[in-house]
Each structure stands twice: as C-alpha cells, then as structure tokens.
Design a protein around this nucleic acid. Structure first.
Lengths: 344, 344
DNA sequence: TATGGTTATGGAAACGATTCCATGGAATCG
DNA sequence: CGATTCCATGGAATCGTTTCCATAACCATA
C-alpha cells in the first residue's frame, strides 16, 4: 500500500494540500494553473485518494450497504445486480452482504456495515428479528427495506403486491377446470411468505372456492421444501390438479419431483410459480409465472434510499404483479390426470 | 449517525481513550476493572467502533474486495457465496463488486476497492485488459486471480484444469457413437475460453478425430450466443450429433433452441456442458456436465489471499475437473437422429 | 530500605483527507 | 486614486481511532 498521499501530490504540483483537495473535489475556487498542475501530478503518481480518510473527515463514504437473503437465489442475484448498477450511476459503491438465510450472519453484516459508515443501507430483512435493524434506526442510518418488510418497523420499503398476479393465476387455473389447486407456501415468518398465502386464499374465495388445508404445504423458500411439497400434496385423498409455488426455488424443487413421477407438466398437472426467473422460460414446457419487475424494484429501492439520505421521508412503494401464461398451464384439465395420479 | 465515539465511551467508563481502545482490541495489558467498566459502557452506549478511523490509523481494514464477472451467472453467484463465507470465518468482510462483463466498470470497481484500502482483492479478471490490474500490483496490494487469469501477470491464482473433464466428455461421446461433436466456445479473449477450446481439440485428437472448423462456434459466455450457436451448428452440411457448451449460460441458450426445434435431448442430440449448476440436475433430462468444485475454488482463493497478505508468495493452484454423466448424453446415437435433422 | 522489573494507565502524536478562516492580490467601482 | 469586493490560496484544526512513550503504582528481591 505504498500510496502517494495528498501531501505528496500537493508537493509535486507545487500547491498546498488544501488547494489540491479543492481541485480533486471540483471546488469552484481553483485557478486553471492549479488545476492543470494537480491533474498532471495525479497522472504522474497514479494517485487514488484514501476513501477512509475522506469518509472520516467528511462523514460520508459514498458507499451504500446491501444485504440480501441469499445471493444464490436468482431473484436476489438479479436484485443485487440492478441495485448495484443504479447505485453506481449515482456515484455510490455497493457493499454487498449475504445473510445466507441466517439471522446471526444477518446481524453480523449489519454491524459491519454500520462500522464502515455506509451512507445508507438497503436490506431484505431476515424473518421478524428486528434487533439488529433497531440498531440501524436508533442510529438514524438511512435504511430501506426491499422485497420484504418487518411489521411495525417504520422504514420505507419497496415490495410487491401479490394480490393481482395471484388472483389472475387462480382465475386462469379455475378457467381451465382446476378446482383443487395445491399451494406451496413460503415461511410464515417472512412477510412475503405471509402475503402470498393470504393473496392465494383471497383469490380462491373470489373464485368461489374454499380453502382446503390439505392443499397447503408450508415450505421455506428453498428447493428441497418444494420437492417435499409435491410428495405431500399428491398423496392426499383428493390430490390437486394444479400447483402454485410461492417462490422460484421451491418451484425448481417441485419440478424435479414432478418430472421424476413421470407427470407431464402442463398436461397431467399445471404448474405456476411466483418470481419470473429467466431460466423458467427456457424449460420444456416453459413455466407460467406471476411476474414482478426486479429491475423496477432495484431502481426504486435506490431512489427511496437516496431520498432518505437527503433527509426526505418517502412513502413506501408497492409494485403490482401479473400473470404470464406459458406452457406449464396452457391446457384445460384432462380426464387422464386423475387416472395417472391413481397409479402413483 | 449519532454514534458514540471512543472518547465518550472512555468518559463513561472512567478511563482514558487509550485504555478503552486496548480493551476493545484485546490488548493484554488491561486490568479486570478496566475491562469490566469498558464492556459495560459498550453495552450501555451500543458502541460500534468507527472502522474508517481504525483503518486510517492501523492501515488495515479487515476487508477484502471481490470482483466477479457477472453476479447473475450462477457459477459466480456460488463462488461469491463461498468466498464470502470463508472470508467471514477469518474475520474479513467482503466487498463484492460486479464487473458485469464490462471493462470500464471493472476498472471503476478496482479503483473503488483500492481507495477503500481493502487488505486484499480476489478478482476474476475481465478479458486481457491488465491496466487496472497493474495499478493493483504496482501498489503491491495483495491480489489473487480466481477462475480466470491474465497471461503474463504474475499473480497467484486458482483455476480449473479443463483437460481431464473435457477429455472424459469427448471419450464418453465418442463411445456412444458420436464422431461429429459441435463445440460452443467461450470468448477467446478470456483465459477460460481459450483453455477449454484447446482441451477440446486435444481431446478430439486423443480420440482419433480431427477438428472441423464448421463445428466450432465462438460465443461470449452469455445465453444468447448459445442459442445462436445451435442455429449455426445445426445448419452446416454435416451437422453434429452432440453439442458441448463451454459454460452454463451458453448451455441454457442452447437448450432453449434445441427444445424449440423439437429435438429430444439425450436421444436426438446429446448435450454436455462445462460448469455444474444445481439446476442442470433438475432438467428433463438432467444435463451431463463437466464439474469442478466451486466450493474448493472459493476456499482456496481465500487461503491464497491470506497467504499473500501475510507476505507469502504461494504457488497457484489448478483444480481438476471431471465428467458427470446424466440423461442428456445417456443413450447411444440412434439412426433417427440424422432423419430428424434432415427435416429441419 | 533501596532497587529493579512488571503492569496498567494516560497524554499526545500520528493516519490522510476536508474545510474553516485569514490573507494577499487583482479587479471593480465610485 | 482609494475603498470595496472577489477569488485563489495556504495554514491549521479536525474527524475517531491506534500506538508510542513516559509515568506511576505495585510487588518482590537483595
């Protein structure tokens, strides 16, 4: 780390450190002569200012923190990507942390981000553990929730309203003749898990169906629980003819099992999932999904955070969702389904 | 940011800032009384030390930088995950940057990481543009290459030797009767793109086959180029009966087109790809892959970096790769293939 | 009791930038 | 031509830690 310092730079340029600093930060009160001399010295020394020292003195770090639940979930990978791009365009570097669905790690990262004096933090909060989050708000560090929220914590958020998309999906399935739809739920300790389930039950009611507890399986947003769900749901007395998964990873797990059982997706059983992952359109048949724009969500999260950092108190944003129909739910229900199911 | 400072903490504990600092950093020369008083004050104030000031004074930040090529590529998402976990276990926070396959952004992130005084940096270098990288080495910032390298830049690296796995794959395909294997190559400006192609041509020779330029398509490691590759490769005079993709995203693009053409994977056409992505095992049929351990790669990258940061000059590590046979290449070549192909 | 060696402590100087404040020179105006 | 304004500049304080150095207190030994 044999970095040249501002003092070295100033000495080489023949000006004071104060003047050199002004040139670097674009302060208006600088002469053309000073600017040229400093810029030449910057090139000569390959000078990169020490962000620590700058942050220490100016109490801003031009850095935001981003804490996602699981970077290996394509939804969060996409989200991280869009947030990072949007932040970069505004001159912010993003420190990305991965809670890895682990509350302890979640807290550790929040403390790490606090101690690194991030100017703000965007977080997809983990469960309902608000302890570390409280530490953020009590320090009045600008915070924004993305995708998920913690009830009772007053922080601006950008989330998805699952009602519209899930209602469309249920209506669509009912229109195809499905009156028994299996639901693979997310964890009820997470706001998105709860919201999507209540959207689903509301949509059933709106279509004149009642909720059958046998047809609801509680998973944990991970692939393995999607697999378990299919086994469980297809072995009840009157098995469902369609499945709805509350997130992409559980859908993947479900798909694997459905394949293994020899059921033909879209014919023997209809499948729809929340989260539009690029790969889903490439499957055979392509998967029908309830889509919400991850690009918009990332962009808005950054906008909200910038607003908060500027002292604003922006309203939370709730995006809409919509159904995209593809091959996995393209056909009306067939008599063959019940027959096949009997053999399993 | 109404953070309590070390001075406040010391005042509350009734000691000097120096003593408080010693307690916090576990310095041996502290009395039990001082320790207790300081620890009580820490709890009372919810004190989190300012990492900027600490880094400024002690010239270490307990932070490493990680720059990946594309966070949306599942391989790099997994890699980021393992590196982050390994680093966290050693007490380092990881600043994750995403070059987004963009040289300019790559350079910008490297400068951002330099100015934040990371203790070291792990990078999957972008192409052969070594300018920003030179800036790293000239400052003697500990650096490690992961997955990819830049020829001629003397930096420890952890990479995969593609020879073994690709040779197994080619032998396997030849054993099934394939003598025309289409190769979807990565960009030849990236070391992995070059290495895998030369492994492939060597494996052909080892199996008594010659290289047909018609059967090599040059892609860019992105899905769209995999799709283009299938169109191109299947329209040559003597089309291949098997395809090998040099990375997972191109394989995904290829799969989509193959499906759309109505070809049955594993029967009409065999497909093998580099990179073992979890999702590939869930496809129907599951995909044969050349696998290399992303967990080991991440772990070793961190080990190498720690070694360099401690002043060592570790040797580069080259991992082996191996073929995993699944349904997409399970059957011997069938006469039907040529017939079907003719109709397209 | 004097001496030496620990040990815990506080004072103060860094680290490398930003920024307030004072200054001197040039430019403008009456 | 003198007074006022404006602009570029440098000196010095500052941000919140760590760490060197000196000191004081203490115990044990001669």
């Amino acid at each position: 780390m044999n970095n040249a310092t501002l003092k070295d730079l100033a000495a080489l340029a023949g000006v004071s450190p104060a003047t050199a600093s002004r040139v670097l930060s674009g302060h208006p009160a600088t002469s053309a002569r000073a600017r040229q001399a400093v810029e030449a010295a910057v090139r000569e020394l390959d000078f990169v200012p020490n962000a620590q020292a700058r942050a220490l003195r100016s109490t801003r770090s031009d850095t935001i923190g981003l804490l996602v639940s699981d970077i290996r979930n394509p939804f969060f990978a996409d989200l991280a990507h869009t947030i990072e791009q949007a932040a970069l365009n505004l001159g912010y570097v993003t420190l990305l942390g991965n809670a890895n669905e682990n509350t302890q790690q979640h807290d550790r990262y929040i403390n790490a981000l606090i101690s690194r004096q991030v100017d703000g933090i965007i977080v997809a909060p983990q469960g309902d553990s608000s302890d570390a989050i409280k530490s953020l708000t009590s320090r009045s560090i600008p915070t924004v929730f993305v995708d998920r929220i913690i009830p009772g914590v007053d922080v601006p958020s950008v989330t998805t309203d699952s009602d519209a998309g899930i209602r469309q999906a249920v209506s669509h399935l009912v229109g195809l003749g499905h009156d028994r739809i299996g639901y693979i739920a997310g964890p009820q300790t997470v706001s998105t898990g709860r919201d999507r389930l209540s959207s689903f039950t509301a949509a059933l009611a709106a279509n004149g169906l009642t909720v059958d507890p046998d047809l609801i399986f509680y998973g944990n947003f991970q692939a393995a629980s999607g697999s378990a769900a299919v086994h469980a749901l297809l072995s009840v007395p009157h098995p469902p003819t369609a499945l709805f998964a509350a997130d992409s990873l559980m859908a993947v797990g479900a798909l694997a099992v459905v394949h293994r059982l020899g059921l033909q997706i879209g014919v023997d059983i209809a499948i729809v999932t929340f989260d539009d992952i690029e790969w889903f359109a490439l499957l055979d048949p392509p998967l029908s999904v309830v889509s919400h724009s991850v690009e918009d969500m990332g962009r808005i999260a950054v906008e909200l955070l910038v607003d908060v950092m500027n002292g604003g108190r922006p309203k939370s944003v709730c995006q809409t969702s919509e159904l995209i129909i593809r091959g996995s739910s393209a056909h009306a229900i067939l008599p063959r389904t019940a027959e096949l199911r009997g053999s399993n």
